[in-house]
Design a protein around this nucleic acid. Structure first.
Lengths: 221, 221
DNA sequence: GGAAGTATGTGACAGTGTTCAAGACAGCAG
DNA sequence: CTGCTGTCTTGAACACTGTCACATACTTCC
């Protein structure tokens, strides 16, 4: 257990000091990712934040991949239980889907890290369980529940990818609106071409699309 | 226009030779990504493949980001027109969605590169136009068509993320099935928990899920 | 022939992940 | 108290990455 903060300890060559442990490293890494995204997590930067050498990170946690795993797991454990709302099973499932999206966007750095490492299930375990619970209550069980859960999560994931896309990093002539500004296909309605140069209302489209999927899996109450 | 292949030209220090041009560089880069994924595309590796110095790449194309843009645009231009099949508008839109997924998975290295750089619209321009064409034919135009196109593409994208996930790179205890093997929530039906430790049939779920979205946007013929 | 442009190269810089070898401190048994 | 073992730390180095300054050779044009 840390008795003093790391940063207050004077640093001596090859000097051992009290207090730095694995949790300190993982917490510092989590903050780096939460604030600056996956790219902000480098071993030198993390070591600098902790006031130690990179080798200390390797000792306490391991490689960068090990640090990433630990960050995702730690954040996943922190996912708050939320009050599911709604009168019908469909509404309750939608409630969980919205919460999953909102949590993901509130911590988009961690979400992108989990996505890059294919570990979104670790991150979202509590919410996936919550959704499975609602499906059970709705009478959707077994492989039907598995398919429902997968389909909803895949769709929510698709929306997250788009919502988290850093538009500023895309060359202006490669953005969706730029691409469609150049399209001149007479078989595409002009009002469609015009509309496709404008931004879509993602939250509205999210509601409509996820609801459509929920409706095919969850019976009407 | 290249008269001789690059690899057959003898190399002299600071020697200029005929034949290497921008297209050669972009083609070589495309092959690297197609075969080895985004991580395989390094400036040194690309230069080695072409038998030139990295500065030659910078001269002909530009930075790595410029090379990436060129690769995505080149591949996008190559997207084959495909025969849309189906008797109804809904079937025809589904046909385009399937083709988009199949093309993406056939060139998953390029797909992942485009996704990482947020440039999937450049890659899929022809297929997005094809889908917009089918929507026009179905009487879905303007903002309705924009929303339909977005929703379908977002969902297909979600499936692609899952389909392209490199399961081998995920720590065994962080995979979805491992996560669900540990879940022991009494409010989740046991058959659901069991089902969630097994693999979902992605193509079947794709059909059902995308169809559900198409059905909410495209009227029944 | 000389200037300007084109097309190539070497070597270096700054940053990254990772590890070797070494040192300092803590705990424990004798 | 001493010596051994384990724990926790370090500096330096390695290999790899993207990028660029500067130099050289060739081509084109007047």
């Amino acid at each position: 257990m840390a008795q003093t903060s790391v940063s207050s300890n004077p640093r001596r060559t090859s000097s051992r000091h009290a207090g730095l442990d694995r949790d300190d490293v993982v917490e510092a890494a989590l903050l780096l990712v939460d604030e600056g995204g996956p790219e902000a997590l480098t071993m030198r930067r993390l070591a600098g934040k902790l006031g130690v050498a990179t080798t200390t990170i390797y000792w306490h946690v391991g490689s960068r991949d090990d640090v990433v795993d630990a960050v995702i797991r730690r954040h996943g454990e922190r996912q708050a239980e939320h009050a599911v709302s709604g009168d019908t099973a469909r509404q309750r499932v939608m409630s969980v889907a919205r919460h999953l999206r909102d949590e993901a966007l509130a911590h988009r750095g961690i979400t992108r890290l989990a996505e890059l490492h294919g570990e979104t299930s670790v991150l979202n375990e509590h919410l996936e369980v919550a959704m499975a619970r609602e499906l059970t209550t709705a009478g959707v069980v077994g492989e039907d529940a598995r398919d429902a859960l997968r389909a909803i999560l895949i769709c929510v994931g698709g929306f997250l990818v788009v919502a988290m896309r850093n538009e500023a990093a895309i060359p202006p002539d490669h953005s969706r609106t730029a691409v469609w500004s150049r399209v001149d296909d007479p078989n595409v309605d002009p009002s469609t071409r015009l509309a496709l140069t404008t931004q879509v209302d993602l939250p509205v489209l999210f509601e409509r699309t996820v609801q459509a999927i929920v409706d095919t899996h969850v019976p009407e109450a």
